[in-house]
Nucleic acid binder design. Sequence first.
DNA 1: ACTCTTATTCTTGCATACAAGGATGTTGAC
DNA 2: GTCAACATCCTTGTATGCAAGAATAAGAGT
Lengths: 221, 221
Amino acid sequence: MAENIVQRLRDEIENGIVTNQFAPGDRLDEMQLAKHFGVSRTPIREALMQLGAIGLIEMRPRRGAVVVEPGPHRIYEMFEVMAELEGMAGSLAARRHTDTDRTELLAAHGRCEQSAKADDADTYYYDNELFHQAIYTASHSSFLIEQCTALHRRLRPYRRLQLRVRNRMKTSFSEHGGIVEAILSGEAELARALLRQHIAVQGDRFSDLVATLAQREVRPG
Amino acid sequence: MAENIVQRLRDEIENGIVTNQFAPGDRLDEMQLAKHFGVSRTPIREALMQLGAIGLIEMRPRRGAVVVEPGPHRIYEMFEVMAELEGMAGSLAARRHTDTDRTELLAAHGRCEQSAKADDADTYYYDNELFHQAIYTASHSSFLIEQCTALHRRLRPYRRLQLRVRNRMKTSFSEHGGIVEAILSGEAELARALLRQHIAVQGDRFSDLVATLAQREVRPG
DNA sequence: ACTCTTATTCTTGCATACAAGGATGTTGAC
DNA sequence: GTCAACATCCTTGTATGCAAGAATAAGAGT
């Protein structure tokens, strides 16, 4: 209970950032956070240090910590790398997946189908995360799983935006179908290519994203 | 100058880990480090938190921080991911490199040639790092550069070991030649494949690595 | 003699205190 | 009226202190 307070703080603040509760550019006041969480500044600082090391916040010397504002180009770069890592995970999953992985992947795919049919964007968003997590797991590379999970998490806010674009949800789900087939039939390179394309934010899709981001600039808060 | 002490501490400790001054499994005593660096425990702890977030050390609750011991399989996984990222960097470099990048890459390649010819493993080790850094830079993806640099750094100790294997240095340099050619002639996929293979620790090479690691187990300290 | 239990010590976890460097507001001069 | 300089305040950076849990050592019982 009085255990890893700093761990809890890190997760809470990270979550706040990822859910846009702390928007990019916001300053994270140590005393304010300390008061909010009912702890002293010390564990807050330690949590912030961790977030800074991961790259979620920027710690300007003597001037406090701010949530990083990646900028469209940088977000694009992050999606590029994510695409590559996901492709790798898919490739490995195609070669290494077990029966359990197969069951889990199909289950996750099934859940995506339901939320896609119900046109429930929020549920689909969540199920989609589980789907990708299932692929990571099936890669059986613990390090790759960690890397993918971390980056996936960092890209959360932008993926969420993307789902609002046109009928991205239906497109996304239909792409999932091909990916599942490729993985389960062991076609590593096909799985890689499909996943890479699935993630890659390029061409018109990227334009949409930038447009959406630009809109968000003029937010009330 | 007396600025970010914690930043300096982080770098110093990280360097100590990467250079095996702090060996895997070693416990990092806060008071000991504090005394050694002439500071209090607070900045030490904050530095350790950062290293923990990166994954270089493990912070066991109430039981102190220890340098992580990756284990051969995990090291293999890390090399796998590194290979993929390097391949991606090479591919992007082939498509995006500027004249400056070209000059830098050739210069780094030239330095590697000299140290390889001189059979100077230590210098080659350093020049090799610059060579790969030149490729990252030529990819013109700041995020990818950061990811590659971080992982490259984490794999330092093991790459160093690898260089001692057989005539790895000569082989490494000859592979560099093909990579340079592929990048400068814009053959993205060839560059990717060559770099991936260059990094990948597989088959006999991996056996060599494990053997070398096993030897290191019985170290004097 | 060996093991289990208990007490002591040592280290970590968190809070508080103090110093120092930016941010800000006010006042004065042009 | 505006800009600049100075003083004040506010936040961060670091040290220290105290409490609590884990490692360790000592003692008793089998």
